[in-house]
Design a protein around this nucleic acid. Structure first.
Length: 890
DNA sequence: AACCTCACG
DNA sequence: ACGTACGTGAGGTTA
């Protein structure tokens, strides 16, 4: 494909717009020293680097819109008139984009009365006739009408760093239309964002159907008489002129009177002096340091120098004695699992005195051990839990941590959930530290740099970044009213989680091995049955092959399709059960193989060879709501709903004979949280009276007088409504979930909101608050930004709205159990119990304890969990114990 | 690496 | 008209 004639055309306004919203959540952190917003410039620059690298064009042009009036507004005064004004934070950035492009040696162009689209269309045509390969980059799908064999239209997805390439084939795949029919589709469907009408009640779907039949708008109207009488036909007739007008508006002009020719667009070298000046003006330190490494490519990307000294047995005493005030400590482990990873090295220091060591035994020197144990000696770290576990493996107890850069960054913005110090530093405008990928590489090539100085300097830079970012992030936490959440919840919780991970849970390996044998036989039997039914052998695990068998060979009805083929998901197979026994067998097969691969062999693989336990890793800084997640292995999704899978829990046992597993869970914690934050009297009454909440909801939404009138099916439906409420309900979602019509679902929801009016008020208010502030909060001030809450795109916006409703509920529940865990950990210590907290599964805590402590736990655990917070409704905690996790019962 | 499927709260 | 339930992780296949 390499050619010496490759033209890249960028739709400047459209990409700038996408760039602006890609970093919209950070619009107030991307401000330069003159108070100029820079988020769109930054993201635009990133995009530019990506596409230049990807397409390696010889010629480049960025086209901009010239102004509001164009030949289209002459045609149709309302064109784009509904469009909200470009935010001033964005429009102030546009002139600087031109500066950036100039420094990059790239021409930009605009033309009075024409839009950027028309410039691009005209040049694309001209260039492809002149033998150029052309790539267009835009955020606007309308441009896919320009796709040809020579012209590829790359539409930005997920921000601006990724594009989807529309060739004519891809347009066909996506829409089932040829590129030139895109304008016919727009003609019929109209475009709300550009504010032209199309035909009433005709959307993309209907338009595509019509065009497949009649090819074009003209074709549709020529054959209008063939259509049988319908509302749609009436609309088509009435809106005929709109359809033709809309098509005209959607059509890109490929003969605009432009004054540049392709040959003038040859890409020039970047003007490094200009670019450096520009980046300094914008405070783009990360781009600056990249530029440095481009100028002097052998050096690690960082712009200042750093000094360090080797730590040795001889100087430890003096080094430690000299410290005063908070000390930064960073321990490096390269492998993904820190419970088993080798130690690579460490750095310790303060105020630009950094001490580096590769020999981990140095840390075990008594002065050092005492230093770590000293609660009065403040330490600053990155990833406290990881550091605690690492030191614990060396027999060292870490106390006195006052700051964790990773945790602080997560609380400030859960959207930036990287675990890489370098990346996090960059997000906070600190660029003097490389990312691990830059220094160590990735995948199989990940390794320490050969040059030890480079390694030491990388660690020293990390330490310095922690120290320098601490005041800024602490200040931001304070501004967000999150100091309590940070100091009193997440920091101490990191230590509790670390100790749970370290404790691990004992596994009965023999039990798992026995199960492996019996599952293997059952799988074999059912596999043979399926082969017999299919009359051939195939890979049942392959949804593609399975689809071919079911829907092509056996001709079963296609219920649902996925992007790539036939869906064979549970719901589909359930529907086929009645007509084809093979569907039911495939379901059984899937159930068994899932248990076998994920839970039996999967868990056997991660049993620690020395202690026979499984040590999971909790991710404390990942979820958007404040929940934990569990990996390597995930112990938060061990089967419980089906009996076959549930038996896996028989392998989770106490670490010693004469001990038991004890488990306690919050009942309906999310609905209780909702009752609390909505102050809804009716919902609160149900909890205060200790009613069965789903039955209570059923009585209200079905208007029943007595609990005895609630049928099991009513309770089931009411339960689904309660779930739906928590998730941010929609009639469609509810109707799908319980198999009723959308109208019925809407009816249920209306009834619900009538019975629980303050819940409805909460939903309305929280969405409005999210729109006003850009984020929502939990009871404990955990924050989630919702950059899409004001999006024009219906899907993005709706999703953000549901998230706004759900996050305070799910997140507050997460806060509450975290408090309970802290208090529980303290209580076990205070009561000097041997009992150990092992696992957390969102609303549930699992312990192991000697038999004689079980009666103590039965009182203590519910009491501690109950009193974690004081809500307007009571908490309820269920609990039980038994010889294995499977057998816990009251 | 992306997709599908399915395990949990 | 739009097309969905909220939050996760892992194994297997396919590209």
């Amino acid at each position: 494909m390499a050619t010496d004639k490759h033209l890249l055309l960028i739709d400047g306004n459209s990409v700038a717009f996408r760039a602006f919203f890609a970093l919209h959540s950070q619009v107030n952190t991307f401000i330069n020293h003159d108070g100029l917003h820079t988020n769109a410039i930054y993201a635009f620059n990133t995009m530019l680097d990506v596409v230049l690298k990807e397409f390696k064009p010889t010629h480049v042009l960025v086209a901009f819109d010239a102004g509001k009036t164009t030949f289209r507004t002459k045609e149709f005064a309302e064109y784009k008139s509904q469009r909200a004004k470009t935010p001033s934070e964005l429009s102030e950035q546009l002139p600087y984009l031109r500066q950036l492009l100039t420094a990059y040696g790239i021409k930009s162009y605009e033309l009075a009365n024409y839009e950027a689209d028309d410039i691009i269309g005209t040049l694309a045509k001209e260039a492809s006739q002149a033998g150029f390969q052309v790539d267009i980059v835009t955020g606007d799908r309308d441009l896919t009408q320009l796709a040809t064999a020579e012209v590829t239209v790359n539409v930005t997805v997920k921000g601006v760093n990724q594009t989807e390439a529309y060739t004519p084939e891809h347009v066909m795949e996506k829409y089932g239309l040829q590129p030139k029919q895109i304008i016919d589709m727009k003609g019929l469907a109209g475009d709300t964002s550009d504010n032209y009408p199309g035909v009433r009640k005709v959307g993309e779907k209907t338009a595509i159907k019509l065009l497949k039949e009649y090819d074009s708008v003209e074709g549709v109207y020529e054959h209008l008489d063939d259509l049988k009488a319908s509302k749609m036909k009436e609309h088509l007739q009435e809106d005929r002129s709109n359809a033709f007008l809309s098509k005209k508006l959607a059509t890109i002009n490929t003969a605009a009177p432009i004054k540049v020719s392709v040959t003038e667009l040859k890409r020039q070298e970047r003007d490094l002096d200009k670019l450096i000046e520009f980046y300094k003006e914008m405070d783009f330190n990360s781009f600056l340091s990249k530029l440095d490494s481009a100028v002097a490519p052998t050096e690690v990307a960082a712009k200042t120098t750093i000094k360090f000294e080797q730590l040795t047995n001889e100087n430890i005493k003096q080094v430690l004695a000299k410290f005063s005030g908070p000390v930064v400590f960073y321990l490096e482990m390269l492998a993904s699992n820190y419970h088993t990873s080798d130690f690579a090295g460490f750095v310790i220091g303060q105020e630009d005195h950094w001490y580096f060591g590769r020999d981990i035994k140095l840390l075990q020197q008594p002065d050092f051990v005492a230093f770590f144990a000293d609660n009065q000696q403040a330490k600053l770290v990155f990833d406290l839990k990881r550091t605690f576990v690492g030191l614990n493996r060396l027999g060292i107890r870490l106390n006195g941590t006052t700051f964790d850069l990773l945790l602080a960054s997560y609380l400030l913005n859960t959207n930036d959930n990287s675990n890489d110090l370098g990346k996090i530093a960059q997000l906070h405008q600190y660029s003097d530290v490389a990312t691990d990928e830059e220094v160590y590489g990735k995948g199989s090539k990940k390794a320490l740099p050969e040059n030890e100085t480079e390694f030491a300097e990388h660690l020293a830079r990390k330490a310095r970044a922690i120290e320098q970012l601490q005041p800024k992030l602490s200040h931001e936490l304070e501004a967000n009213d999150q100091i309590g959440l940070f100091n009193e919840l997440e920091i101490p919780l990191a230590l509790v989680l670390a100790q749970m991970e370290i404790a691990g849970i004992k596994i009965d390996k023999d039990r798992l091995n026995d199960m492996r044998g019996s599952f293997k036989e059952r799988i074999q039997q059912i596999q043979e049955k399926i082969y017999a039914e299919a009359e051939e052998e195939f890979n049942i695990n392959s949804s593609k092959q399975l689809g071919a068998i079911l829907f092509e060979k056996m001709n079963l009805p296609v219920i649902k399709k996925t992007k790539t083929g036939y869906s064979t998901a549970v719901g589909v197979l359930e529907k086929l059960k009645g007509i084809a026994p093979i569907a039911s067998d495939v379901l059984d097969y899937r159930g068994l193989t899932k248990i076998q691969s994920t839970y039996i062999t999967g868990l056997l693989k991660v049993i620690h060879p020395e202690d026979g336990k499984i040590h999971t890793t909790y991710l404390q800084t990942l979820t958007q709501t404040g929940r934990l997640s569990s990996i390597d292995p995930n112990l938060q999704n061990i089967p419980v709903r089906d009996e076959d899978g549930r038996q896996i829990r028989q392998a989770f046992v106490p670490r010693e004979k004469g001990w038991q597993i004890f488990a306690a869970d919050y009942s309906q914690i999310e609905l209780r949280v909702l009752a609390h934050i909505s102050h809804d009297k009716n919902l609160q009454a149900a909890f205060k009276e200790g009613m069965d909440i789903h039955a209570s909801t059923a009585m209200r939404i079905f208007n029943l007088d007595s609990p005895a009138d609630v049928t099991p099916n009513m309770r089931r439906e009411a339960k689904a409504v309660n779930f739906g409420i928590v998730y941010g309900i929609s009639d469609y979602g509810l109707s799908q979930n319980i198999g009723i019509t959308r109208l019925q679902a809407k009816n249920y929801i209306d009834n619900y909101f009538r019975e629980y009016p303050n819940v409805q008020k909460y939903m309305t208010d929280i969405v409005q608050s999210a729109k006003d502030h850009g984020y929502v909060e939990t009871l404990f001030h955990r924050r989630r930004y919702l950059p899409d809450i004001n999006a024009k795109n219906f899907n993005l916006r709706s999703f953000a709205e549901r998230t706004a409703m759900n996050t305070p509920i799910q997140g507050s529940a997460a806060d509450i159990i975290k408090v309970a865990m802290l208090n529980m950990h303290k209580a076990l210590e205070e009561h000097k119990l041997k009992a150990t907290m092992l696992l957390q599964v969102h609303d549930e805590l699992i312990f192991e304890a000697p038999d004689d402590e079980i009666p103590v736990l039965r009182k203590l655990v519910p009491q501690v969990m109950d009193s974690a917070v004081d809500l307007e409704v009571p908490m309820k905690v269920g609990f039980g114990s038994g010889p294995t996790w499977y057998n816990v019962k009251d």
